[in-house]
Each structure stands twice: as C-alpha cells, then as structure tokens.
Design a protein around this nucleic acid. Structure first.
Length: 109
DNA sequence: CGAGTGACCGCAA
DNA sequence: ATTGCGGCCACTC
C-alpha cells in the first residue's frame, strides 16, 4: 500500500503514464503533482519507489539522465534508445533532446 | 518527534 | 558560456 505518501503515489502514477519514446522533467512532474518546487522530491521518490516504474523516461530540465539510476546511466541510456529515444553525450554526461521528447500527460489524456 | 538528505531548479557572479 | 550557491518540499533514519 503506498498510502504513506500521496505525493509519491501521484508522481509514480505520472511516471507510469509516460509513453515509450517520450521523456518528462522532474519539475514538470512536480508541478503536475501540485508542487512545482518539489522537483527534488520527485527524484527522492524515485530513489526508494518501485524500480518497476520507467524512471528512465524521467530526466532533468537539461535533458540529462538521472544520476542514481538502477545500474547507472549506461542502463538508462540503453533503455531510452530501445524505446526510440536518441541519447546524446558521452558516458560522463548523457542527455536527450528534451525539446523533441518532452511529453506532458495533460496534453494527451 | 527531530534532523538530515536528495535521481532538482533558478538565479548570480 | 560556465561555475557556485541557496531554497524549496517531501521522504528516510
């Protein structure tokens, strides 16, 4: 039961809704959750939340991949490419064209 | 219950 | 353009 934190529950719901080949920013998710300033919380949630969620589709405003992804940025990069997202940069700094892959749930649903 | 931390964001120098 | 600092909210120990 994830009723301990409705914020986390809400964030997870959004992340799960992100379609393959699309990415969202922590600030975007946080804003949809109701707290645009809780971008850090979104990342915090991810760190201890269900690893089953596609956190790989969640990136920061710079389009850079997360830091503590399960297995490292390498795994995240691979997962994104598998979904059709072109990951640029080098092993020290992976990033995606957020302008092309940024997706918003309220715009689709 | 209290304190610390964080997968961030925005601004300033 | 790049680098450094603070702030903000929620979660964990």
């Amino acid at each position: 039961m994830i009723e301990s934190s409705q914020f986390a529950e809400r964030v997870q719901a959004i992340v799960v809704q992100i379609p393959a080949g699309r990415v969202m920013t922590y600030g975007q998710i946080a804003a949809i959750c109701g707290n645009a300033r809780a971008a850090r919380i979104v990342g915090g949630i991810a760190h201890f939340s269900n690893p089953n969620l596609p956190w790989q589709r969640v990136v920061n405003k710079q389009g850079g991949l997360a830091a503590g992804y399960y297995g490292g940025r390498s795994g995240q990069k691979r997962d994104l490419e598998v979904e059709g997202v072109k990951v640029l940069g080098n092993k020290d700094n992976y990033y995606v064209s957020i302008k092309k892959y940024l997706w918003s749930p309220i715009h689709e649903v």
